[in-house]
Structures are given as C-alpha cells and as structure tokens.
C-alpha cells in the first residue's frame, strides 16, 4: 500500500492537482489540523493517525479553495461519504477532485485524549466504510480497532423512551445553550448554501437571536435540512462550543431515513437524493 506522502507528492509534481488538502500535526501528538499543500515539499508534513478528526470535504465547496483549481483531498470513509453526497447534489464534479482514501483505523472523540476504547468516536464503532467506497487512490493499512460502547445510540434510545413533554423539556434545555455561533453549520460539509435560511431576512424565517424561540427553531430547521443528507461525520457536534448533543438529532434523522426509505446518505453518487425523489409507495399512514 502506498504512503500518503508519496501519493500526494506524485499528484502535485505531475501537475494532476494544484493542491492537496490533508492533515498536519499541531502542538502535541494528539492533535492535528487541516492543511492545504500547494508545493510538493509541503507534503512532508502530512500525517495519518487516530487524531485526524476533521472532515476535509467541507473545504471542497468553499470559495477560497475552489479558486485553487483541481484539488486532491484526503478522506476517511465517512469523509468520502460526504464527498459522494456533494457529488450527488451537484455541488462538485467527480472529475474536478482527486480523492485519496485512507484505510481508517478509527479516530478519537476529540483532541488531546488517548486513543482507546473509551475515547474512540461513536461513529467509528460500527463503521462499515473503514475502506472508503469512493476513492481514486488508497493509502494505509487496516488494523484492529478498539471496541467500545455506542453512548450516543444509548442516548437516542433514552430520549425515545421519554414522553413528549419530557422530550420537549430535554431539547429546550439543550437548545437553550446555543449561542448561535453557527460553528455547526460552518463545520458541516453539507451545509454549503450560499445564504443560510437563518441569514435570510426578507422575510426572516428563523430568528437570529439566541433566545429560546430562536434557538429552538434554528436547531429544528438545521436538523431538518440535513435529514437524509447527514452522513454522520459528527463534525457539528465536535465544533459546538456549548456541547449541544447535535448528533442526537442528525443520527435520529438518518435512522428515520433508513427505516422509512431504506436510504443511506452518501453511499451512491449516482442515486437521486432522498428528498429530491419520491416513491409512489411512500408511507402515508399519518395522512388522513
């Protein structure tokens, strides 16, 4: 299996791409940050380890990056799903990017913690895309990963078990923490709208104030706009400075999409999107 540096260097020197988006170590050994290499020698800083948390697909739709021309991007299995979803939604073209897939051995929940069964990210526990489905080159080798308990799923089940009133109270409290910094939106690879619904002011559908009402509506609509689109990279939750358990919403929506339509986001770049298509046999028990 090829080494990331060799692959990236080859892409840059041959001129196949103008830039490679990857990870470099930052600060201590348990932290990385995204980095855009434009010169072959920049590639030497690239690392692949258990702390490459960022989903680099978020950069592909950004104006500052698309200016660079054709880019290569390092993608874990979940990141490759995001790229697939972006292609599905016609935001990027397959031929404009080069995906360097990595055989992923799991990542941590956050930086600065050890990689072990306690700290492994929930999304890695039952991961079915440790080898990315969509990639132009593949690097790294698979190894055993620690197993752990999927706490978030347990939380979802916990919320489901509550009655409606308790659920409302729970989410009202959680959402009330929101400060409207929109880190969740900006960190999300699929939140690429040029103007977000919350920034639209004529009329103002979603209030920008961080009040209970504004927060509730914002988090509700964010979850809905990602329904059937969220690929579960969980970057929103990691980015949230107020520790709102956003995955409780996104994952629940993905579960609904699976139950209702047997749909998994980001698995087939040629498939129609979930809300962009329909089936005559869709469930309508709830409609009178």
């Amino acid at each position: 299996m090829d080494d990331i540096k060799t692959v990236a260097k080859e892409l840059l020197t041959s001129g196949k791409v103008n830039a490679v988006i990857g990870y470099i170590r930052y600060g201590n050994d348990k932290r990385t940050k995204p980095f855009i290499a434009q010169k072959p020698e920049d590639v030497d800083k690239f690392v692949i380890n258990n702390f490459i948390l960022n989903n680099l697909a978020v950069y592909l739709t950004r104006k500052e990056v698309s200016k660079l021309g054709k880019v290569a991007v390092i993608a874990k299995g979940c990141d490759a799903k995001a790229i697939t979803a972006l292609i599905q939604e016609n935001q990027i073209k397959k031929e404009d990017i080069h995906v360097i897939g990595i055989n992923c051995n799991g990542v941590t929940k956050d930086f600065d913690i050890d990689f072990n069964s306690e700290n492994i990210a929930g999304k890695c526990l039952n991961c079915d895309v440790r080898t990315p489905k969509l990639c132009d080159s593949l690097v790294g080798a698979l190894a055993d990963i620690p197993s752990g308990e999927d706490l978030k799923l347990k939380m979802i089940r916990g919320v489901e078990a509550k009655n409606a009133e308790e659920r409302w109270d729970y989410f009202e409290d959680e959402f009330n923490k929101c400060i409207k910094c929109y880190a969740c939106r900006q960190a999300c690879p699929l939140c690429y709208c040029e103007q977000c619904i919350v920034d639209k002011s004529i009329p103002r559908w979603i209030e920008s104030s961080a009040t209970k009402r504004g927060n509730f509506s914002w988090n509700l609509i964010r979850a809905f706009h990602l329904a059937g689109r969220c690929i579960g990279c969980n970057e929103c939750e990691r980015a949230c400075p107020m520790d709102i358990p956003l995955s409780l919403l996104n994952r629940k929506m993905a579960m609904i999409a699976k139950d209702e339509f047997n749909y998994d986001a980001g698995t087939d770049m040629n498939a129609p999107t979930l809300v962009g298509s329909y089936d005559l046999k869709d469930n309508e028990d709830f409609i009178e």
Binding site: K33, E64, C181, A183, Q186, A187, E207, A239
Partner: peptide, 26 residues
C-alpha cells in the same frame, strides 16, 4: 489563514473580550 478558516464565530463567541453585536427586530 483565510483558506483554512471555516468562517464560524466560535472564536468570537467564546472570547472574553469580543464585543461585536447585531441589532434585529422581532
């Protein structure tokens, strides 16, 4: 730096001294 920044305001909102604000009617 501009290339890497995602453009959220996490930095400003957790900052003890960032003070910019918006005024909106509701």
């Amino acid at each position: 730096i501009g290339k890497m920044c995602l453009g959220c305001a996490q930095c400003a909102f957790v900052c003890p001294v960032c003070h910019c604000f918006d005024i909106v009617d509701e």
